[in-house]
Each structure stands twice: as structure tokens, then as C-alpha cells.
Amino acid sequence: MASKVQEIAASHAAAELSVATISIDDIFHRYDEAIALNGVSFEVRPAELFALLGPNGSGKTTLFRILSTLMLPTAGRALIMGHDAAKDPNSLRRQIGVVFQAPSIDVKLSAYENLWHQGHLYGLHGAALNQRIDEMLGRVALADRAHDRAETFSGGMQRRLELAKGLLHHPSVLLLDEPTSGLDPGARRDLWQYLRILRDQERVSILVTSHLMEEAERCDRLAIMNQGKLVALGTPADLRHEIGGDIIVLDSPNPVTLASKIESRFAISAKVISRKVRIERENGHRFITDVVEAFPGEIDAVSVSKPTLEDVFIRRTGHRFWTEADQRFQEAADA
């Protein structure tokens, strides 16, 4: 928590390069008995593409609600461009564009009318608004469909209109909640490409929540959340490097015994996760030959891979990102 003196000193300091656009300071949140956020702190820098990665129930949606001023945190502070989400919501709202997971466009209105309405909510009107609408529709490639009702649009076109809606008032920070859910691979690729253009050309800070590892890989930095806590924070490359080496996974009819045998024989750490033995080690390809020769008949299958963000997650939490039930549910939802 900052003291008053520090706050004043900070507010007088000239804008530095390292100034945070989003600053989350020790946020707690509780729904009745359940703790959704348990002391989360991190910062997002200017013109940064930042991912908030976590499985369902990790607290990322709760944090998104607090940042977008839809809900007050139980304790702690969230600032965007220096404005407190709890104390000065309207100043903060001016600075942010928000794209929710649920569609917010009115499908009974045309693309143009949706943006016209949105502009009025931000005090834009007249010729300036018209010009801005034309500009945004051109950017999201909907200019030729400007006067068609949004209900006639494909899923990808509707999502692009959502994005145009969120960006109409030139926000400094864009918040997106699971922006690619329900989109086909082509539309996903387009969206990510557009987010990068936005970051590079307009220097917008972008925070994206996602449950997809491969999406978080495309961001500049990411925060991984689990059960209301931040378990990792950094660039995708840094997080992967901390594992140092390869990931070796062994299938065995008796993984627990095998793991303890490996530990005593090679003096290394071997964990059992989802009924498979899992080892982090450099020069994995050489290690496999040793281990297979050492325990003939006890290993059914072997795999070696470079660490992924999921491996970072496993290392920090001791369990897999998705439980099997979650995985099936997610596949059904994505289908």
C-alpha cells in the first residue's frame, strides 16, 4: 500500500518510460464464502500486449470485472492511467475500451448505428463522430456493410464490429475478455494481427484474458493465474527458460514406483502428474536412453519436448492446467 507522501511524489514525477498503464495493487476479492482473488499485484506497461492466462475459476474474470469498473474489489486497488477504478470510475472509463466475451452490439441496428450510439455514450457527435465511424469501419473492413444490420453478419464480422465499438473513442487501454472464443482459426488470426497493429501504431496497451496457452504465447508478457493467485509473471520466453532444459514424460503401468526409483537412481526430481512420470532435465534425448535402459519393461512410452507455458504452470502449481473434465467441457464449448 502506498503512503500519501509517496502518492503525491509519484503524481508530481514526470512521465517516465516505465510508467504503468494498468496497475493492480494487492487485490482481494471474495464472493460470499469463496475467495476469488487472493492478493494479486502486477502492472501493464504502455503499448504492451499483455495476457491474463488461467483456467476456469482462476479469478481472471473477476479481475476483468474489477478493471472494467463493473464491480468493486473487496480490498486492494486497481488503477488505469492513474485513475482509481473504485474512486473515480468515470475518469477511468474514458481511458478504456472494453470488449466483453458476450456480444455487446445490438444486432437489430446496423454497423453504423451501433457505432453512432456508442459515440454518443462517450460524448462524441456530429461531423467528428461521422468521420470517426467511417474511419473505424474502414479499419475493421466493414465499410461496405456499414448500413446492414449486424444480425446479418458472420461471427468474425460481429467481433470486428465489437472491436470497432471498443476503440471508437481512442482509448489508451483496451481490455478484451476471451476475445477469440467462438471464432474460426482465420478470424482468430486476423484479430491477433489487428491487436498487434494497434499496439505498434497507436501504442494502445492491451490486456487480453485467455484460457489458451497458444494465445498467451503471442503476447509481450503474461500473468498466469491459478485459484485467485498470480503464479507466474513475465515474457513467454523468460517463463519457458526458467525450466531450463527439456520436459520428459514417461508412461508407465506403475508411475509412482517408477518415479521414486528414478529419483534414487539418478538423484533428480521426478513427479507424477496425471498418472505420468514427469522430469525436467537438460539434454533430454540422452537421458531417455539411460532411463529406458535402467528400467526395462517398466516404461510404455516416452516423450521429450521443449517446455511450454503449460509446463511453467505445472511447475508452479503441481497440477495440469486443465483437469480432464475441464478439457472435455472446453472442447465441447469450442466446437
Binding site: 469498473t69 468515470n90 466483453f100 455487446s104
Partner: peptide, 14 residues
């Protein structure tokens, strides 16, 4: 139920 109301509520509208 859809996100429309949310998009109004996050706008700086009294």
C-alpha cells in the same frame, strides 16, 4: 444477458 448493458455501464455515462 447479452453484453449490451455492460458496454453502456463501462462508458463514462452518468
Amino acid at each position: 444477458k447479452v453484453g449490451f448493458l455492460l458496454s453502456v455501464l463501462v462508458a463514462p455515462v452518468p
